[in-house]
Design a protein around this nucleic acid. Structure first.
Length: 207
DNA sequence: AAGTCCCC
DNA sequence: ACGA
């Protein structure tokens, strides 16, 4: 497709960062529409504690966590309705980024929306609730900067730090598909359009 | 364990 | 470290 895009960095084998690849303003408008139909909520973990991030979903399937554990569902438990349709520009961005990163044919059926405010963090975890781990994960950052970190196949050990800014797209697949990763406690800063918050869109092939 | 707590 |  477009080998024209030069501002890409290989973080580790299977993990590619496309810097400022996404049209942040265009995604922002679609995001607002999605959230009107599927509002943000705070998910509970299986042991009863709450995640600091607030989440929603769009696409055929949405990621859920509650006392039953983690899973994908085609129904939003908050509204009882199917999740909002994945906007065309969301899907096209994810497919193009995956192809550029070396994962052609990616067709996401789920988009998890994570909302971070100052103080929000995401502990080290693996994305392992998808049936097809041959498909990569495409992660789009919007709003203020965040300090992302990557471990390996084990939770312990040293991490690779990655600064993620508005419009950055991180693709991880192949050997990095099941790597532990997370987001450090978000530091206060402001973005001209989004204000003092960060959004993350992660595209997956859930089923 | 996508979190919390506790000790160095 | 914990117990999933």
């Amino acid at each position: 497709m477009r080998d024209l895009f030069s501002d890409s960095v290989e973080i580790c084998p299977g993990m590619v960062l496309l810097r400022d690849f996404a049209d942040s303003a265009a995604l922002q408008g679609e995001l607002e529409s999605v959230l009107m139909a599927a509002p943000l909520r705070r998910m509970q973990t299986s042991r009863g504690s709450y995640m600091s991030v607030q989440t929603s979903n769009c696409g055929q399937f949405g990621w859920l966590s509650d006392r039953q554990g983690y899973r994908y569902s085609d129904i939003d438990p908050l509204t009882g309705e199917p999740w909002p349709v994945m906007p065309v520009i969301f899907r096209q961005l994810a497919e193009t980024a995956a192809e550029l990163a070396g994962f052609p044919g990616f067709r996401p059926d789920a988009c998890l929306i994570n909302y971070y405010q100052p103080g929000t963090q995401m502990g080290a975890h693996q994305d392992r609730d998808e049936s097809d781990c041959d498909a990569p994960i495409v992660s789009v950052s919007l709003g203020i900067n965040a300090r992302f970190f990557v471990l390996g196949s084990e939770r312990r050990g040293s991490s690779i730090p990655v600064n993620l800014s508005d419009g950055d797209v991180l693709v991880f697949g192949g050997p990095a598909r099941l790597f532990f990763h997370g987001v450090r406690k978000l530091k206060f800063s402001e973005h001209p359009r989004f204000g003092p918050v960060r959004w993350n869109l992660t595209f997956r092939k859930a089923l």
